[in-house]
């Protein structure tokens, strides 16, 4: 029994550790996910990424237990055309704040595994680990 609790503790430590030490200096501010129409196949997540560290931080991948795939996309208007492109990695310079907002950068939340209620949790993966943030579901920007 004691052995089992040690194992659980070890696994828990492994799971929690990256969130505690990773993406040093990076914070996720004002996160939100747009309330989708019922049955929407994709949702969009927005936030501000602030780097208060001393070196640039590159966020390369994202994931969430609620979605099959999470990608960073950017909407843009070019010659009257609405475009959406995937951004492979986002680098945030020291002191820089990158805004993910409607009409620009957004997290593309694909293949929802269930109906998303009031919130969802999204992980940002940096070179040195993972930052986890809770995104409330809202009709419009906070």
């Amino acid at each position: 029994m004691r052995r089992l609790s040690y194992s659980i503790a070890a696994v828990a430590a492994l799971l929690l550790a990256p969130a505690a030490i990773a993406c040093e200096g990076l914070s996720v501010e004002a996160p939100w996910v747009r309330q989708p129409p019922p049955g929407a196949p994709v949702m969009a997540g927005f936030a501000q990424l602030l780097n208060q560290g001393k070196s640039a931080i590159t966020v390369s991948t994202f994931d969430s237990a609620d979605f099959g795939r999470v990608e960073l996309h950017r909407s843009s208007m070019v010659d009257g055309m609405m475009r959406m492109e995937r951004i492979a990695a986002l680098s945030v310079a020291p002191g820089e704040r990158v805004t993910l907002a409607p009409g620009g950068y957004h997290l593309m939340l694909m293949q929802p595994r269930q109906t998303i209620g009031e919130r969802t949790r999204i992980q940002l993966h940096c070179a040195d680990g993972t930052l986890s943030a809770e995104f409330p579901v809202r009709a419009s920007a906070p």
């Binding site: 929407a40 969009a44 996309h73 909407s75 959406m84 409607p102 009409g103 957004h106 593309m108 939340l109």
Partner: peptide, 15 residues
């Protein structure tokens, strides 16, 4: 014109 797999601009415009 749009499509339902469009999570950003289409819901914005429909709003």
């Amino acid at each position: 014109a749009g499509f339902t797999f469009c999570p950003d601009v289409c819901p914005n415009t429909l709003g």
